[in-house]
Design a protein around this nucleic acid. Structure first.
Length: 583
RNA sequence: GGCCCCAUCGUCUAGCCCGGUCUAGGACACAUCCCUCUCACGGAUGGGACAGGGGUUCAAAUCCCCUUGGGGUCACCA
């Protein structure tokens, strides 16, 4: 009878609804079940990695399911953008949304779909009907206001609010609800008994009787709540092991109760600790906004800087802390404000030039370790060794400095060919301007000049922005180090040549010099021996300032080759001019 | 606040389950030195932790209890 009030109806019996028709399978099935998102958070990445490693190391399957039962959250095309991040990390799924990988192969699919919960409503309704029929669930008509009042009352008694069955509505009530256009939710009638939360990481713990209330399993809009959908889908998708964030630990009691009422099997649970920021706060997407808000405040900025974000976006953003800037806008604003956005999502780290294998390695080390002081390993190793018995219960702080060190080691271990290939791929994706500006010879030179000092794939580009400047647009940085190199403002010892003097002298030497690494080095060394007391540094540094604008660049001979002879001479002239005007 | 979970160098962690082999090991970071045309890389050396208090025991980082601190949860979010 109440079925008539349902928003969604059952159309026959789906084969998927038979859950116990298959013999127990010994190989495990794990799943990663995020809500829709365009970006994969590092915490989520670690959960996915562990799920993947556990299943794949035991001949099982790894499933991805999209938990999009909240209609308020957008579910546009970008909703599964995070899939590309998973694929990039080397985490591939056996079942789930279909995804075309860059290499042309296809990931996903499977016979237990659909893998979007929003497409599974009739399945959920079928099982909700079973629960109602067996007396394990009921419709509840309370309005938000009524619930709020109840909650306040409980708060007044200093108690946590627990919803309990409030009796069948009378005929008059029912008529009034209908007149008001009220739509009921469905609540689960929680068994009044202690509930054991099974957890292979934290250990089994008993929740006292009454802790679990009659929670909602179907919302007013006809969508199931997370608790209900997750239990049904884990059963139907044959999930044997559930590894998820620790915030779900207490929720597990609800899931266990639901499984019992539904006659479902119980997967093995393992709750993973959260990953925190160095300052102990929870790592979140908001962290980027926080950095920007702080910078805006500190710099006293009251209007959006040119070509960063629109006035509308700016106004909305400054008006409320709850509003977050678009990723693109945030990046442009950070550039304008000269602040570094913290990397939070997997694609942030990708953009910064981190290696996917290093991210996986490092992520795995946050909350798990293979023991025996081993800490460098790949996903194959993880797959072989990963087990719940060595998962840590304590939350880890995400240490970007150590991540960088790991990345540096991996970069150093690369062959030159691999380094070039991966840097090129990185540039194609994130630094196209370098590819456009540099000739193949220059690019090759940049690679040899930067390989041993690069900590990330982005470093050859990020650290050498002077290559993008024209000979006329290059700005010389006026700071202490530059002044020291050129001898500006310093009282030099009697007879000693300043950096500027060396620059003038080198100008004519370089003009005569063959533009090769060896010839340049010989010419400069000869000059340094004669005129700089053999100190090549006092010649190289002024040259570096002249061609790169700062005191930091790749080895000076490589830098000169990179800039080229005409360019170098022109930059020298401009630098001399600039320095003379400064003193 | 109720309920639940957790606790080793600054950080990630090994050791803890099965007490002695731990004057607690590794890695990152830090400090000093070496290398050096800048920045890096690299090499050497060094400081640095069992949250506190009670037990149990011949013996406790390891087992038990309390305190303190941290986290999670208490939604028609997931």
């Amino acid at each position: 009878m109440r079925a008539s009030t349902w928003v969604f109806c059952i159309h026959g019996t789906l084969p998927l609804m038979d859950s116990n028709s298959e013999p127990a399978n010994s190989s495990p099935v794990t799943r990663f079940a995020p809500s829709p998102s365009g970006h994969l958070h590092v915490g989520g990445a670690r959960t996915a990695l562990f799920c993947w490693a556990f299943a794949k190391g035991r001949g099982g399957k790894f499933v991805i399911r999209i938990e999009d039962t909240d209609q308020k959250r957008s579910s546009d095309a970008a909703s599964v953008g995070f899939l590309k991040d998973l694929e990039w990390l080397g985490i591939r799924w056996d079942e789930g949304p279909v995804f075309r990988a860059p290499d042309g192969s296809s990931v996903g699919g499977g016979e237990h779909g659909p893998y979007f919960q929003s497409e599974r409503l009739e399945i959920y309704n079928h099982h909700i009907a079973r629960l109602i029929a067996s007396g394990n669930a009921y419709e509840a008509w309370d309005s938000q206001e009524e619930l709020e009042a109840l909650r306040k009352e409980a708060l007044g008694r200093k108690e946590a609010f627990r919803y309990r069955f409030r009796g069948e509505p009378s005929a008059e009530d029912r008529a009034r609800f209908a007149a008001e256009g009220r739509v009921p939710v469905v609540r689960f009638r929680a068994k009044l008994a202690p509930v054991t939360i099974p957890d292979e990481v934290l250990g089994y713990t008993v929740l006292p009787e009454g802790e679990v209330d009659d929670f909602v399993i179907r919302k007013k809009d006809g969508f199931p709540t997370y608790h209900f959908a997750v239990v049904v889908d884990d059963e139907l998708m044959r999930v044997t092991h559930v590894f998820r964030a620790q915030e779900h630990f207490t929720n597990t009691a609800k899931h266990v109760l639901l499984q019992d009422a539904l006659g479902f099997r119980r997967p093995v649970y393992g709750h993973l600790s959260i990953i925190k920021n160095p300052d102990d706060s929870k790592m979140s997407k908001r962290d980027k906004d926080k950095v920007l808000r702080k910078a805006v405040k500190e710099q006293g900025i009251t209007a959006p800087p040119e070509s960063t974000v629109s006035v509308e976006e700016w106004t909305a953003w400054t008006a409320s802390d709850a509003v977050q800037l678009s990723l693109e806008g945030a990046i442009r604003l950070a550039d304008a404000l000269r602040v570094q956005l913290p990397e939070i999502n997997v694609d942030d780290f990708r953009r910064s030039g981190y290696l996917p294998e290093v991210i996986c390695n490092f992520l795995a080390l946050n909350g798990w370790s293979p023991g025996h002081d081993v800490e460098k390993f790949d996903n194959e190793f993880l797959k072989e060794r990963f087990g719940l018995d060595r998962v840590l219960k304590t939350p880890a702080k995400f240490d970007r400095v150590k991540l960088l060190a790991f990345n540096t080691d991996a970069m150093n271990a690369m062959s030159h060919e691999e380094f070039v290939a991966r840097c090129r791929a990185h540039a194609e994706a994130f630094r196209p301007e370098y590819l456009a500006r540099l000739t193949p010879e220059q690019f090759a030179r940049l690679m040899t000049a930067t390989k041993e000092r690069s900590k990330t794939l982005d470093e050859p580009f990020k650290s050498n922005a002077f290559l993008l400047e024209t000979n006329e647009s290059l700005q010389f940085k006026d700071d202490k180090a530059v002044r020291k190199a050129l001898g500006i403002g310093a009282t030099s010892e009697a007879g000693a040549k300043s950096g500027l003097d060396h620059l003038r002298a080198m100008r004519s030497i370089l003009e005569q010099c063959e533009w090769t690494h060896d010839a340049l080095e010989h010419a400069a060394n000869a000059y340094a021996t004669d005129c700089a007391g053999g100190k090549i540094g006092s010649v190289a540094q002024p040259l570096r300032v002249a061609v790169s604008g700062t005191t930091v660049s790749p080895p000076i001979w490589d830098t000169l080759l990179l800039v080229g002879k005409p360019g170098s001479l022109r930059r020298l002239d401009r630098c001399i001019e600039w320095a003379v005007a400064l003193r």
